[in-house]
Amino acid sequence: MSIGHTLLGLLESGPRHGYDLKRAFDEKFGHDRPLHYGQVYSTMSRLLKNGLVEVDGIESGGGPERKRYAITDAGITDVEQWLATPEKPEPYLQSTLYTKIVLALLTHRDAADILDTQRAEHLRSMRILTDRKRRGDLADQLICDHALFHLEADLRWLELAAARLDKLKAAVHT
């Protein structure tokens, strides 16, 4: 995820302090990992340097110095471009798991065990996500669902692979 583009997008609704930006980000997208303030600061410096934001004003007194950032026209164009560009679908062509299975087969280890262990681990994750989804709000549900669908896809692959282990074994040893 591009933090720069996300922060730019948040600025589009109006100028904000750096601390406000961090709070808004955490609230909407940072369920897993809240941003460090330092991350916000370095990202904003980079955006300033590229002319995508400008400093709208500085508040001082009391606490630390607080800069207010505003988005520039170039910044708006940049957000627009980012949103319009489709993400490259993850091809998952190089799978660690596949490598593990083939190696297990080559070394006459139990590949089915590897698959089952992985399966149990996947389902454990899915249970946690499901549980979180049940407690969470709509945003939680959507995010968890995204992960759950991915995990489910993996799990289906595990099932398919398990069903085809014998064929794979024959293919690996020829």
Partner: peptide, 14 residues
């Protein structure tokens, strides 16, 4: 046979 349904369980038997 759906993993996402099974995820509502506490434990799984295959």
């Amino acid at each position: 046979h759906e993993a996402r349904v099974a995820a509502y369980s506490d434990r799984e038997i295959v």
